[in-house]
Each structure stands twice: as structure tokens, then as C-alpha cells.
């Protein structure tokens, strides 16, 4: 009796409908909460580029959001460096809501480039670091992060990385604090003002004297992830040059 084709089809249709309704219902109910969590996570990572992650992790979510709203001012630019103030729907552009992953799929000229300016509370004009999102490909899947540049726009103040599927214990180590700390103090520009590509080298425990200001100690067993990191940083540093030229290098005096 149960085995008739009609029964099977009816059963499957009902089951699918019930499960689909259940899942979409849950997704609707939890949606806002998930968005909050995602937003908090993004802000944590942005702040993590300019202050120790361990300190941020100790803070309550409300305190993090409060701190973020005080010390970060954000804007969005296009590839030419012109500011974008309205989003596709005509509302105000919110830098935190720019989906870096979606933008990454477009050609560099069509992407939107958010910039997060770090300053002490209440001192918007006295920017201490420019934080820009970076996105690229690791060995297995996407890697991304936030790169904090010193006010000279050459030196790295700090960095945070995340990844989707790098090998635990190898490439996934880019999320570890000590690994990220290796980038601080490195610079994209040499003494003559020429841009030099940053390179996370092959092999680990290379002495600092051999590395110099443009090379970063690598990850043993994760050279391909490190290559992805190199490309990601160098590419995005290049993409932001137009913005920096228009709004930071020349306009710095006028803005103040």
C-alpha cells in the first residue's frame, strides 16, 4: 500500500514543503540576530588591525560597538578614488555593509573600496591609521583580512586575517596573533619612494636581519597560502593608491 508511486510522490512533496517552511521560518527569525553577529565580527576584525585582538576579545559586544563608533570613521571610494555616498538603492552608503566578497568577483575598476579611518575618540581629523579590507585566494579557498596602514600610507601598522578553508595547523595559522604580528613595521615603499612588493617568504624562522623591511617570515608548510597573502596585500595596496592620492596625500593639508 505504502509503496505506490503516488504515495511516494505525495509523501516527498509534503516532507519537502514542511522542512522548507521550517527552515525559512528559522532563517527569518534568526536573521536579524545573525546580521548583528556578523556586523560585530567585522568591527572586531577592523579594530583588531590597530589594537591587540586579545584585548578586544575580553570586551563585551556593546563596549566593542561603542568603541568602534568612537574611533572609526568610514567612507567608500570607487577605483578612481572618488567617494561614493549613496548605495544602489539610493540610501546612504555604509562602509561596513560593502560586501568585499561580492566586489572581489567584479573587475578591480568596478569595485567599491571602503576605507576605515582610525583616530582617537572625537578627533576625526587626526587620523592615526587607514584600515582597508583585503581579499584574495589562499590555497583551498578565500582568504581576507584588514590591513592597517600608518599615516605615511607605506608602513603596516597591523593586520588581521581570516580564511574559509585553509589547512588547520598550516595555512590556517594566518589567523594567529603572532603570525599577524610579523607584518607590523613592514613597509611597501623603499628609501627612494618606489613601491616594493611585500613578500611572505618560504620557510619559517628566517632571522629578521635577513628579511629586511619588505619580507615577512613565512609559514612552514604553507607557502601557497603565504603566496596568496602576498598577492592579496600587494593587489589591494595598488587598488587603493587612487584614493590615497586624492584624499590623503594631497588633501591632507586642505582637510585640516
Amino acid at each position: 500500500m505504502q509503496q505506490s508511486n503516488t504515495y511516494i510522490i505525495v509523501f516527498s512533496v509534503i516532507l519537502t514543503t514542511v522542512l522548507a517552511l521550517l527552515l525559512s521560518g528559522v532563517s527569518q527569525v534568526l536573521g536579524p540576530k545573525q546580521k548583528e553577529a556578523q556586523d560585530l565580527d567585522t568591527k572586531k576584525q577592523i579594530l583588531g588591525a590597530v589594537m591587540p585582538m586579545a584585548d578586544i576579545k575580553k570586551m563585551e559586544p556593546a563596549a566593542i560597538l561603542d568603541l568602534y563608533s568612537k574611533v572609526i570613521t568610514a567612507e567608500v571610494a570607487d577605483y578612481q578614488g572618488n567617494l561614493i555616498t549613496t548605495n544602489e538603492k539610493g540610501g546612504p552608503m555604509v562602509a561596513e555593509e560593502v560586501n568585499i566578497e561580492k566586489n572581489y568577483k567584479k573587475s578591480p575598476e568596478e569595485r567599491q573600496y571602503p576605507v576605515f579611518k582610525y583616530h582617537q575618540a572625537g578627533q576625526q581629523n587626526n587620523v592615526e591609521a587607514y584600515i582597508v579590507p583585503v581579499y584574495g585566494a589562499g590555497l583551498w579557498d578565500a582568504i581576507w583580512g584588514f590591513l592597517a596602514l600608518e599615516t605615511d600610507l607605506n608602513g603596516i601598522k597591523g593586520i588581521t586575517f581570516s580564511h574559509k578553508g585553509e589547512t588547520p595547523g598550516l595555512g590556517a595559522r594566518i589567523t594567529e596573533g603572532p603570525v599577524q604580528a610579523r607584518f607590523a613595521g613592514k613597509t611597501f615603499v623603499d628609501g627612494n619612494g618606489n613601491i616594493v612588493e611585500l613578500q611572505m617568504v618560504k620557510g619559517e624562522n628566517t632571522p629578521e636581519s635577513k628579511l629586511g623591511p619588505h619580507k615577512i617570515d613565512g609559514l612552514s608548510g604553507a607557502t601557497l597560502t603565504a603566496n596568496g597573502v602576498n598577492d592579496m596585500l600587494n593587489n589591494y595596496y595598488g587598488y587603493y593608491q587612487n584614493y590615497f592620492d586624492k584624499h590623503v596625500r594631497t588633501g591632507a593639508m586642505a582637510n585640516n
Partner: peptide
Amino acid sequence: LVPTRVRIIVQLAIVAT
């Protein structure tokens, strides 16, 4: 209620949900 011929996929659907 589960039809025996599609029981695996039914189990899978429940677990996946």
C-alpha cells in the same frame, strides 16, 4: 509512514534540516 524505497533520502532530508 516513510516509504521504504525512499527512506534513505527521507533520513537525509531530516538530518540535513
